[in-house]
Design a protein around this nucleic acid. Structure first.
Lengths: 110, 110
DNA sequence: TGCGTGTATACTTATATCAGCATACACACA
DNA sequence: TGTGTGTATGCTGATATAAGTATACACGCA
């Protein structure tokens, strides 16, 4: 890391991770998982997305290492892999909030 | 932030930011900007990408708030907007490194 | 072993994204 | 005002991604 120049191969991997987070549906799933582990069915209910969709998005989040899965009988329970994911989201959210506030100030003071 | 449920509108905005980081070329540009401000031409040289490409990617990074721009005569100088971007990249890189090391260990010890 | 329920995947269509080329635009300077 | 250089943008074809439907697969249980 540090200041070393990163190879394009590594950057491609990094880009893939960001791409995995670059979808509203997947972020919804991650948000729903904030509260704790959830089965696919529960996530379908939580998000209102179709089952196939949820399953596909979860698969991608899983191969990207953002969630872990565990079979429980007939169900598969998904869970946030670690807290880094939320750190990433919160960093971006923080930036957004700052921008929104700045913009609001502009509008109010016009 | 905290644990409040985020609206899908906000999540869409967040997703757009992540999407902006979800491209190898754009990450290359951000990496090149680590060293300091750069003109478009310099970034073309640094990255080997086409000029139109570089310009478009920079435009996206700019509207996403990751870089700032400043005209300098005939040139436009781009610069990292803040250190958060690097924090984001480094978080993901850290995760990757950990995985790669784990995988390498598997290969070596097979 | 057969059935029902939960999850994953194949296939399709619609949409988005990317790179390259050509060209328009912005600016400095003769 | 015209010319050259740096930057941005419109257009195009190729590729990737997303969602829906149908269906396959996995598991528990009668």
């Amino acid at each position: 890391m540090s200041n070393a120049r990163l190879s394009t191969e590594l950057l491609t991997l990094v880009a893939d991770r960001f791409k995995a987070l670059g979808d509203c549906g997947r972020l919804q799933l991650l948000q729903a998982l904030r509260a704790g582990p959830r089965t696919v069915t529960e996530l379908v209910d939580d998000t209102g997305m179709g089952q196939a969709n949820v399953s596909r998005h979860l698969a991608l989040l899983h191969t990207s290492g953002f969630v872990s899965r565990e079979r429980d009988g007939l169900f598969v329970r998904y869970e946030l892999a670690d807290k880094d994911v939320l750190k990433l989201c919160d960093l971006v959210c923080g930036r957004l909030e700052a921008e929104v506030n700045a913009r609001r100030k502009l509008v109010v003071n016009r």
